[in-house]
Amino acid sequence: MTHLNSNWVLLTIFLFFNLSFTSYSQKNANDAPLQKAPDFTLKDLSGKEVSMNEYKEKFLVIHIATTWCPFCNAEAPYLQALYEKYQSENVEVLIIDVKEPESLVKSKLQNKYNFTFPVLLDSDGNVAASFAPENVLPDLARDEVMLASNLIVDPEGNIQFMSLLDSKNFDAKLISLQKRLNELLQEN
């Protein structure tokens, strides 16, 4: 192979690799297929076990949070407002707090925002991790990927919205989520 040809081969390989990588990342960010929400059972702040099965035939909004996450704190009042607004329309709301002790979550999250929906404790992060789409942010720990994410699970248990994939900008007022929720409620 001549020197000239080898340079062109290298160039082609680099271009192919970069275009493939970009297209792969975009595909995973925007076109993730509809997936089933994983089953889980977690304790709430009163020690009561709450499982995904209890939300069959309901729309469920899940927010994955930590007390120190500014995005989660910014959303918190809007999440409570959303619950109050949609409560009568077969919509439930849950917060899954990741890897924090009960006392901290009670004092810094529950007592501050007075949620009237359950706050669940995912003490080892396994449940949060189980929601993380494969290949999205592959270099991060799976439970970390989901921090500050919002999801809508439909009555059949399908994930119909994930802010990680559906929102390009931070959306404290949950506008994108509410838009999707309204669509789903109308379709139903």
Binding site: P70, F71, C72, A148, S167, N169, F170
Partner: peptide, 12 residues
């Protein structure tokens, strides 16, 4: 340190 970007936060 505890890092964030414009959309989300990460573990310390």
């Amino acid at each position: 340190y505890q890092p964030c970007n414009s959309q989300k936060c990460f573990f310390p």
